[in-house]
Design a protein around this nucleic acid. Structure first.
Lengths: 394, 394
DNA sequence: CCGATTGTCGGGAACGTTTGCAATAACAGA
DNA sequence: TCTGTTATTGCAAACGTTCCCGACAATCGG
């Protein structure tokens, strides 16, 4: 198939021999059909990309020299390097990263394993992760686990088969001990998007949830609220627990301590609405609500409006995450900003470092700061605006 | 490094020889350190995954037999196949997909190349695409082009180097002729998420935008609206143009024709708000607005509220896309549902088919249906509700 | 002028699979 | 018993890189 081998005299250091060398049939697909062989090739263009051998033959050097010239460039003469690069450019040579990965053992691709990319939080993390991966000359494969342990392990297995260089994971909390041990035994670098519950064998990137909760508490206190509620998810959820702890602790340790009402439920839109209904039914006089995330806060808005309560006139509301829609909805939601993009970026930075170091992995932990985004969903409970309706709760 | 070669007698058809064969040092990492060699191995666990050779040696057959037994299973004795599978399971063998990809030429991975995954539309497409890819035993790499032509081409080059099996692309409209020709010349299967503007060399998956526009028009007409506006993006945008065409045409061809006001601008939140301000300033008595997508519709809501207009009491509003937040915001947005998940799924199905067929690619075009989602942002202009404010426009 | 060092390059063995081809055994029909 | 067919398996060549190692020339220190 490969025509005319052994035609070239590889004269050592012979510049003319390299530059002016007679070119064999150029390896473009169209000209690969000399007369008399047409029936062999067939009429459909058998697409054969040019390899490092083609570049080597065309430039009169060995494949190893081509590899050196194109990669690091060390240990190869300056002129030959330029020549090889020129020939490679002329032939439009593209290295086969699969073959390279086979010998180097690195696939130059990372994985993002989240519960669902449709969650706007993860979408933003993904964007940061992809940008970081790209700047590290890697690409990012996307996996949706749906928080299913088996599915997650299947993904990991599949990724290991592709010799993935590292995995950025949403969570490992739903994995049992054996599965977690299997992960560490696999030897692949792993960064978690939240703090590891038990062990510290995995690297982690996490927003400072506890400080965020405290931030929300102080903000509501400063506005003058005294009857405060916190709607959050199940007690097992690490991140949400941290937020609740920071929130409650800041309220309790204030100069004039406050004991908030804390309700647990589902941490989605429906959960926020449901908990709000429960709150309004069973607790009187609440003036401010801290929702564990923005989507729950949207559920609060819905339930409050259904009860004839206006935000912020009748009820102040603060969320957590600062997803893009929080600034778009009405009223624009005051919330705790979580640096989602930066978290994805930082996580992949760690992953790239771990992938570079072949030595024993030293896990790294980054805690990223949060900040309060003040918009229009909170107000002082004392300032009764014009036309404030006097509707009581239920 | 690999210990003890040539110790096994590969007796043909000797079951005892296969099953009861003496096992060499099992290739687990921990037991690879016999006494006296500790200083060679080192203390860090040099992670060496087991290969097909280990399985072959352990089961007393050749690597080719192992390959056949584990893959298609054709051409290998039933008992030996079971035995090989058992040995592979015992050793926890995982095939190296990189090595396989090198010889087969298929990487078993597809790419999703969109402008920005943070756009919830693409997030949903991505989820559908990933599910389809997974069911086809492929994985999906994520690329964000930011609608930048150079960036897009760089991604394609990088993906080609990885011998990607197919690419699902947002758009090629920003690519010039030469770049598009380069794409088709690369030979990689490509599916576009919208209709190809000029040529039909690419496969396409597209929602029926024109019908969607007509659906919105008929809905507003049925409600009794006569003063209707359409806010849309720039004239070059194919999808939005189709929606506008269907909308306008349906209004004009109605039994009692209506000539709508059509305004062009940016197709994001700010654009929706800006166009709404312009609309309210320059056109009197508009009772219904059709926004080219839901995010623009949110901008309409914002601008309308700022002007003291309530939705739907003072202004009916209908969007396009039916992103998740459309059902969450207040008021819940009536909109045209676009099957985003199904579009991603269908596109990858086509991609998988194209990747399987090595013959000349026959492009496939799928047009997916849309439907009206009736929520609470539209109302008949005749029915003036209780307490309707009489505030005039400006 | 000679040995040692350095720079440059080619040869060739990996990396872990798949797969075409040949070899052997089993088995059938005659 | 001989021959042809089939089933099963081994052998070895790919696939396209990287990289160790040795060969050779040039340079340099003495």
């Amino acid at each position: 198939m490969m025509p005319l081998p052994g035609l070239f005299l590889g004269a050592h250091g012979d510049q003319a021999g390299r530059l002016g060398i007679v070119s064999s049939s150029p390896p473009q697909c169209k000209t690969l059909t000399p007369a008399g062989q047409e029936q062999i090739i067939g009429n459909d263009c058998t697409f054969m990309p040019i390899t490092i051998k083609d570049v080597a033959r065309e430039s009169g050097v060995n494949t190893s020299t081509v590899s050196r010239a194109l990669n690091n460039g060390y240990g190869v003469n300056d002129e030959t390097r330029k020549h090889v690069i020129a020939v490679a450019a002329r032939l439009n040579y593209r290295p086969n990263r699969v073959a390279r990965g086979l010998v180097t053992g690195r696939s130059h691709s990372l994985a993002l394993l989240v519960s669902d990319i449709r969650n706007p939080f993860f979408a933003e993390v993904a964007r940061g992760a992809e940008d970081a991966a790209r700047s590290g000359n890697c690409d990012l494969v996307l996996c949706n686990s749906d928080l299913n342990a088996d599915k997650q392990m299947q993904y990991v297995q599949s990724l290991l088969e592709k010799r993935i260089d590292g995995i950025l994971m949403n969570s490992v909390s739903m994995l049992n001990e054996e599965q977690q041990a299997q992960l560490v035994a696999s030897g692949v670098p792993i960064v978690l998007l939240n703090r590891s519950p038990s062990n510290h064998t995995f690297s982690t990137v996490c927003a400072d949830n506890e400080s965020g909760g405290a931030l929300a508490a102080k903000y509501l206190l400063n506005l003058g609220h005294r009857k405060i509620a916190h709607l959050t998810g199940p007690r097992q959820h690490g991140n949400l627990t941290d937020r609740a702890r920071g929130f409650v602790r800041a309220l309790q340790t204030a100069v004039d301590p406050v004991q908030p009402t804390v309700l647990h439920g589902k941490f989605n839109f429906a959960g926020g609405a449901e908990l709000t209904r429960k709150l309004l039914d069973e607790h009187q006089g609440i003036t401010a609500v801290f929702a564990a995330n923005d989507v729950m806060a949207f559920g609060v808005v819905r339930a409050a409006l259904d009860r004839g309560l206006r935000i912020p006139e009748d009820l102040s509301l603060i969320g957590f995450d600062n997803i893009e829609f929080s600034g778009i909805v009405h009223p624009p939601l005051t919330t705790i900003h979580q640096p989602k993009y930066e978290m994805g970026y930082a996580a992949v930075e760690i992953l790239l470092r771990l992938a570079r170091e072949k030595a024993k992995q030293t896990p790294e932990h980054r805690l990223l700061g949060v900040e309060l985004i003040e918009r229009e969903s909170c107000r002082s409970p004392l300032a009764k605006p014009r036309g404030s309706s006097k509707r009581s709760l239920v």
